[in-house]
Computed example of a mutant assay.
Amino acid sequence: MIKTDMRFNQELIKTFIGKHFKQYKCDPFVYTNSVSQICGIYIEDEVYALKNVQQAVDYFGTQDDIAVFSLDKSEESEIRSCYEDTAQVITPVKEVIKSITLVNEHQMISKDGSQEYDVWLTRGMIIKTDSREYSFSKSTVPFSEEIEIFKGDDALLQYEDGSDFLEGWDDGIEPHVEQKIVVIE
Rank of each mutant, 00 (worst) to 15 (best):
P92K: 12
Q54D: 06
K138F: 06
A56W: 13
F60C: 01
K19Q: 05
I38D: 01
K51F: 10
D72M: 07
F69R: 00
S144T: 05
Y83M: 09
L12D: 02
V96E: 14
M6Y: 13
E160M: 11
F143W: 11
V53G: 01
G162V: 03
E84H: 15
I173M: 06
I100E: 00
T101C: 06
K51I: 11
K94W: 03
G124C: 04
F21D: 00
T91N: 15
I181K: 11
G152F: 13
R80K: 15
E75N: 10
K51M: 15
I43T: 04
Q37S: 13
S163K: 14
S81A: 11
A155I: 02
Q23I: 04
E105P: 01
P92W: 05
K22N: 10
S135F: 02
M108Y: 06
Y31S: 10
K25P: 02
L71V: 06
I126R: 00
N9R: 07
W169F: 08
K180E: 07
R132Y: 12
S99V: 08
D65P: 02
V96F: 06
L121H: 03
M125P: 00
E133I: 04
P142I: 04
I147S: 02
Y117M: 06
T32E: 15
F60G: 00
A56K: 13
K73R: 09
E178T: 12
D65A: 14
D45Q: 10
S163L: 13
Q37H: 10
L102N: 03
K14M: 08
K3Y: 12
A155H: 01
K22C: 10
G40C: 07
S114H: 08
W169P: 03
V35W: 00
S74T: 04
T15V: 08
D64E: 14
K111C: 07
V96H: 09
F29I: 10
D45V: 05
Y31L: 07
S36N: 13
T129S: 02
Q115N: 08
G162P: 01
T32N: 11
R80T: 15
L156Y: 04
E116W: 09
W169T: 05
Y159D: 01
D118M: 08
S163D: 15
R123T: 05
V141I: 15
D118V: 08
D130E: 13
D5F: 09
F29Q: 11
E148M: 12
T62L: 12
F29L: 11
T140I: 13
S70E: 14
R80Y: 14
E174N: 15
F21V: 05
E178Y: 12
H20D: 11
I38K: 04
I126W: 00
K3A: 09
G61H: 14
E116P: 03
S139G: 08
T4E: 09
A155N: 02
Q88A: 06
K151Q: 14
Y24I: 03
K180P: 02
L157T: 14
